[in-house]
């Protein structure tokens, strides 16, 4: 699905990501773990075009997408969620989601001014997409609820739905289970499996080891911006370099 070659990002003197090469495999759950500040979010920012890499290449299905803007990469089918989900609190959950499919529509100012039939059609498509995405994440019943009034876990699901409404091939999830309780974490893991079962490739960053170990097909470990290990959960668990990186870290054994 996606291949990364010698990717690097420097912030002044700090190498947030350095010389990382890896592959995100189609139809799998690819996980990225590492201590705080290891460069995981920066890695996502590079893949999704939010930040430009200072070195290296990113290939999406063989096509070089290095240096494209985030919106261009989104149109190519890469969608993401953020560590914290910012919703428009004064609007309903459904209203927050309708814009998710905007990138697949073409209506512009002229359509708006003349009230074109294309605009009406596309607005209906976006609305249907939003409903479908809400149903997929199991939140159809709170569609009319004000975004300000939903729980942390529902917020995470809405973020998933927003990413799904863009019709992605690859979804990048940044700490999808951050700040939710263990029971809800299991529910979110279930949802991620469902996404993969529906043909969407997933790459996620997570600190919750139990979740990662049971969910991921492949894990990449970052430490100080460098890839220190990669493999199946069993391989990662047995890897001495990983154990070293996590020793003394607050996340050990979580």
């Amino acid at each position: 699905m996606l291949e990364v070659r010698n990717l690097g990002k420097r912030f002044g003197g700090l190498a947030a990501v350095s010389d990382v090469s890896t592959k995100i495999e189609t139809g799998k759950v690819n996980a990225i773990i590492g201590p705080n500040g290891a460069g995981k979010t920066t890695f996502f920012n590079l893949l999704s075009g939010v930040q430009k890499p200072t070195s290296g290449q990113i290939l999406l299905q063989g096509r070089d997408i290095t240096g494209l803007r985030a919106d261009q990469i989104a149109v190519l089918g890469v969608s993401r969620t953020f560590q914290t989900t910012v919703l428009f609190n004064q609007a309903s959950v459904l209203d927050n989601l309708i814009v998710g499919h905007r990138l697949r529509t073409k209506s512009g100012l002229l359509d708006v001014l003349i009230g074109s039939s294309r605009l009406k059609r596309e607005e209906q498509i976006c609305r249907d997409k939003a409903h479908a995405a809400l149903e997929f994440v199991g939140l159809e019943k709170i569609a009319t609820r004000l975004a300000a009034d939903i729980s942390q876990e529902e917020r995470k699901r809405v973020a998933f739905a927003l990413a799904l409404a863009t019709d992605p091939q690859l979804v990048l999830l940044d700490e999808p289970a951050g700040g939710v309780n263990p029971e809800e974490t299991e529910g979110l893991a279930e949802l991620i499996r469902k996404m993969v079962a529906n043909g969407i490739t997933v790459c996620l960053i997570e600190h919750k080891m139990n979740m990662i170990m049971s969910l991921a097909d492949r894990i990449m470990v970052l430490n100080y911006g460098e890839k220190i290990a990669e493999g199946t959960p069993a391989e990662i668990r047995a890897n001495p370099a990983v154990i070293d990186a996590y020793l003394g870290s607050e996340h050990a054994g979580v």
Binding site: S48, V50, R69, A70, A74, V75, R80, G100, L162
Partner: peptide
């Protein structure tokens, strides 16, 4: 409105800022 909500999220939804 998506842009008002945040540049990063809007851009990641494919909106040309």
């Amino acid at each position: 409105m998506a842009i008002r909500n945040g540049d990063d999220l809007a851009e990641s939804l494919g909106i040309n800022l």
